[in-house]
Write a protein that binds this DNA or RNA. Structure first.
Length: 471
RNA sequence: GGCGCCGUGGCCAAGUGGUAAGGCGGCAGACUGCAAAUCUGCUAUUCGUCGGUUCGAUUCCGACCGGCGCCUCCA
């Protein structure tokens, strides 16, 4: 199947054809979490977008080498470690564990590597050295090393911001470091007392210190993926300054293009505003689990809006996703159990795959892929109602569903059944069957109602009665 | 102040210079002892407002109104 894959590139502000430079493996770097606090759903929206991207890249036929960094040394981590009398590692280790648990809950595929900033200090120092050698970085009086943006002419090409002036209304930097130029950013920060105390200081040619935030990503990306990446992704708020600075550092050191494509996911909002820790309106994966919001529902919710569009988290939207995903789950089971199909089923399957691929390859149009899936489910259900004995049509339908769901991954998980429950339910259902046989529907309905009250759905099918635990 | 995004039915949300996908919800019908699931039909003469370009605009341009984001903590 030919189909060109197209992706929006922040560098050019256009949707462009994309393919990996070597034609086979996409080398992508995705900015990961700063691990001082469990990541919130806003962070996960971005990670979900990246999960979608890597799955679509594979659907297109490429392999993927994804790196997601874990920023395990930074101001907030040091602050927290200091407050609690811990080392930064003692702060970050448990948070990293939570990150992976949340990641798995949301069915976000494991990236090929999760480098920790603290494990790449030598590479970072080498990068700073290269920049100093090339004359685009300097050590200031405070001992820190800064990148001199006016010695890097293309600075600003990604964000297209006029960095010359800081206007009224802009947040003003309260920098405690001394720099030549207000826009220069720290590559290497001279160690302070609390850095030493929390294990956040390393030896370097410029004295004890620690890496600047931007430096971490450049060093890890280039160490693990080479000097020119195919793709670099993150949240839209990283465009400036983080990604702009990464470009400056990396290209300033190598003279080569750092990343061919830059992709940014839009924000997740809560109550109409950005979800951010400092605004105190964050929701986490833990909140979702408490409210029995399945991963499938979250994915459906997130993928129902294009990744470059803001998305507002609301109870109504989540509820809608939960219901939609229930229909998908019912259909998935029905597909497994069906014996045969019809020619029209096969035709619907072909259309679904074609539409979903076209949508996904067109700048990750997940909402449209979801629509293709739903349209397929409607058509397939109608055909299945009609019966049919065509085995190959059935297989084609299963393949189509597996292919699309292999990207979206929106079938709700089965609710686990605790020991002993099955026997108890079966016993009650036997009683109910007897009641129905003697047409004592009041008794039969009472049993069904009591089971439903504890989260057991009872359905009478032509083939017999089936029960499922729904929560 | 600079830069940028958005405004589509009750809710969520695609999309296109040629006459509005899909989901949720709701209503009616089929099926069922009744339900559930599923199916069928209905649910925006209209895409923030006002102008302009055009044979034709929701889609292009301009203004305005409303919401949001970035301008060195930030997914």
């Amino acid at each position: 199947m030919p189909s060109e894959f197209r992706l929006y590139n922040t560098l050019t502000r256009q949707v462009e054809p994309f393919a990996p430079a070597d034609g086979a493996c996409v080398r992508m770097y995705t900015c990961g979490p700063t691990v001082y606090n469990p990541a919130h759903l806003g962070n996960f929206r971005t990670f979900l977008f990246e999960d979608l991207l890597r799955r679509v890249l594979r659907l297109r036929g490429w392999s993927v080498n994804q790196v997601m960094n874990l920023t395990d040394v930074d101001d907030k981590i040091i602050k927290r470690a200091n407050e609690r009398g811990l080392t930064i590692t003692q702060v970050t280790n448990p948070v990293i564990e939570i990150f992976h648990r949340d990641r798995e809950y949301l069915r976000i595929e494991r990236a090929e590597s999760y480098p920790r900033a603290t494990e790449f200090i030598p590479q970072m120092i080498a990068l700073v050295q290269a920049l100093v050698d090339r004359g685009v970085a300097y050590q200031a009086e405070d001992g820190s090393v800064y990148f001199a943006i006016d010695r890097f002419p293309s600075y600003g090409k990604l964000s297209r911001l006029d960095t010359r002036e800081v206007r009224p209304g802009a947040r003003v930097s309260q920098d405690e470091y001394s720099k030549e130029n207000a826009q220069d950013f720290a590559l290497w920060k001279a160690a302070k007392e609390e850095d030493e105390r929390t294990g956040a200081a390393w030896d370097s040619p410029w004295g004890r210190g620690r890496p600047g935030w931007h430096l971490e990503c450049s060093a890890m990306a280039m160490s693990l993926l080479g000097e020119t990446l195919d793709l670099h992704c993150g949240g839209i708020d990283l465009i400036f300054p983080h990604h702009e600075d990464e470009i400056a550092q990396s290209e300033g050191a190598t003279g080569k293009q750092f990343s061919r494509f830059w992709c940014h996911g839009a924000f997740l909002l809560t109550d109409g505003t950005k979800m951010a820790k400092r605004l105190g309106n964050v929701h986490t994966v833990a909140d979702l689990r408490e409210n029995a919001v399945s991963a499938a529902a979250v994915r459906h919710f997130v993928f129902s809006t294009h990744y470059r569009q803001e998305l507002n988290l609301s109870a109504d939207a989540l509820e809608g996703a939960l219901n939609a995903v229930r229909r998908i789950g019912t259909f998935a089971r029905r597909l497994e159990e069906a014996r045969g199909g019809t020619p029209a089923l096969a035709e619907a399957a072909r259309i679904a795959v074609e539409s979903a691929r076209a949508a996904l390859f067109d700048d990750l149009n997940a909402p449209e892929a979801l629509a293709a899936l739903h349209t397929f489910i409607g058509a397939a259900n109608a055909e299945l109602d009609r019966g049919g004995t065509d085995e190959s049509a059935m297989q084609e339908a299963r393949r189509a569903f597996a292919l699309i769901d292999g990207v979206l991954d929106v079938v709700p998980e089965e609710v686990s059944v605790e020991a002993g429950l099955a026997e108890r339910v079966e016993a009650l259902l036997a009683e109910r069957k007897a009641a129905r046989a003697r047409r004592d529907f009041a008794a039969a309905d009472a049993i069904r109602k009591s089971l439903e009250a504890e989260g057991i759905a009872v359905e009478d099918l032509p083939t017999g009665t089936r029960w499922t635990k729904v929560r």
